[in-house]
Lab assay of single mutants.
Amino acid sequence: AELMTLTIVKGAQGFGFTIADSPTGQRVKQILDIQGCPGLCEGDLIVEINQQNVQNLSHTEVVDILKDCPIGSETSLIIHRG
């Protein structure tokens, strides 16, 4: 298992991935745009978004944080894999 830092840019259609609740937090459910989120894999656990720890937040709260990220700006994700 490892922590990885990824930088992704939000496009007009969003980030290009969906998230779902899991017992340990929000996991990447589906990658819709592989080019839009390079390095991200289905099943990755989202630990931080732009230096904000999201592991204890609800699904709705994490979705809102992602929605609030401006289109075209870089967003830093720390994910836990494995």
Rank of each mutant, 00 (worst) to 15 (best):
K67V: 06
R81M: 01
G16K: 11
E42P: 14
I31P: 03
N56G: 13
D33A: 10
I79H: 01
F17E: 00
T75S: 02
I65P: 00
K29G: 12
L57Y: 12
I34K: 12
V63R: 08
A20G: 08
G39V: 01
N50S: 11
N50W: 01
L77M: 13
K67D: 15
V62T: 11
E42H: 03
F17T: 00
N53V: 08
Q55V: 11
T5W: 03
G36V: 12
L57T: 05
C37T: 09
G72P: 13
T7G: 04
D64R: 07
H59K: 05
A12Y: 05
Q55S: 04
K67L: 07
G82D: 13
G14T: 11
E61T: 02
G14S: 09
I49S: 00
T75W: 04
P70M: 06
V47R: 11
P70C: 02
Q52D: 14
I8G: 07
L6F: 13
I8Q: 08
A12H: 03
G72Q: 13
V62G: 00
N53W: 03
T18D: 12
I65S: 09
P23N: 10
P70H: 06
K67E: 10
K29V: 05
T7E: 05
V62P: 01
I34G: 11
Q55G: 15
G25C: 04
T18N: 12
G14F: 03
G36S: 04
A12W: 09
L57V: 11
H80L: 05
T24M: 10
V54H: 00
C37Q: 06
R81K: 03
L3V: 10
A20R: 04
K67H: 03
C37K: 03
A12K: 10
Q13N: 08
I65W: 08
Q52C: 09
E61N: 02
K67R: 14
I19C: 02
I78W: 05
R81H: 14
E61D: 12
S73E: 10
D44A: 02
Q55M: 12
L32D: 13
E61W: 01
G39T: 11
G16F: 06
V54I: 08
K10T: 03
L57G: 04
I49H: 00
Q26M: 14
L32S: 14
G14Y: 08
Q52Y: 11
L45A: 07
S73D: 05
S58C: 14
L57S: 14
I71H: 03
G16P: 12
C37I: 04
F17N: 00
C41D: 14
C69M: 06
K10V: 08
S22Y: 10
C69L: 08
E48M: 04
T75K: 05
T18H: 05
G14Q: 09
N56C: 02
H59W: 08
G72V: 05
D21N: 06
E2P: 03
K29C: 07
L3G: 11
D21C: 05
A20V: 06
G72A: 12
M4Q: 07
L3E: 14
Q30D: 11
G43A: 07
A20D: 15
H59R: 12
H59Q: 12
V62S: 02
L6P: 03
N50M: 06
G82K: 04
T75A: 15
C41L: 12
G11P: 14
D44M: 01
E42S: 10
H80R: 14
E61C: 10
Q35A: 15
Q13F: 07
S76C: 13
F15M: 14
T24G: 14
I19G: 00
K10G: 05
L45V: 03
T5K: 11
L45Q: 14
V63C: 03
I34L: 13
M4L: 08
I8S: 09
S76P: 10
R81Q: 09
V54M: 07
D44N: 03
I78L: 09
S58Y: 03
G16E: 09
I49T: 01
N50E: 13
V54N: 00
Q30P: 06
C41W: 09
L32H: 01
C41H: 15
G14C: 06
C69T: 15
G36N: 14
